[in-house]
Measured scan of single mutants.
Amino acid sequence: SQTQRTQDENEARRIAEEWKRRGYDVEVRNRNGHWEVTWD
């Protein structure tokens, strides 16, 4: 799996939607004030 971090929730949601469209299983988490998008 791969993880991308961002400070911006909207960006995190956009990234998550992009990977979901490509057929990946995606998880979005808030950790210590930043957002992590993990896909595999």
Rank of each mutant, 00 (worst) to 15 (best):
S1M: 13
S1N: 10
Q2G: 15
Q2I: 12
T3P: 08
T3S: 10
T3I: 12
Q4F: 15
Q4M: 15
R5K: 11
R5T: 11
R5N: 07
T6H: 07
T6N: 04
T6D: 04
T6P: 04
Q7G: 09
Q7W: 11
D8T: 12
D8K: 04
D8P: 02
E9N: 02
E9S: 04
N10E: 14
E11I: 07
E11H: 07
E11F: 05
E11C: 12
A12Q: 02
R13W: 11
R13F: 09
R13K: 10
R14A: 10
R14N: 06
R14H: 05
R14V: 08
I15D: 01
I15N: 01
I15Q: 03
A16E: 09
A16M: 06
A16I: 05
A16F: 05
A16Q: 05
A16H: 02
E17D: 12
E17R: 05
E17L: 05
E17F: 04
E18A: 06
E18P: 00
E18I: 08
W19G: 12
W19P: 02
K20F: 12
K20L: 14
K20P: 02
R21I: 08
R21H: 11
R21P: 03
R21Q: 14
R22F: 07
R22T: 03
R22A: 11
G23M: 02
G23E: 01
Y24T: 02
D25A: 09
D25F: 11
V26L: 02
V26C: 06
V28R: 00
V28A: 02
R29Q: 10
N30D: 08
N30A: 10
N30Y: 15
N30E: 14
R31K: 11
N32R: 05
N32S: 07
N32G: 13
N32E: 10
N32I: 04
G33Y: 02
G33H: 03
G33T: 06
G33Q: 03
H34D: 08
E36A: 02
V37W: 01
V37R: 00
T38V: 13
T38S: 12
T38H: 10
T38L: 09
T38N: 07
T38W: 11
W39Q: 03
W39H: 07
W39E: 02
W39T: 07
W39C: 06
D40M: 15
D40Q: 15
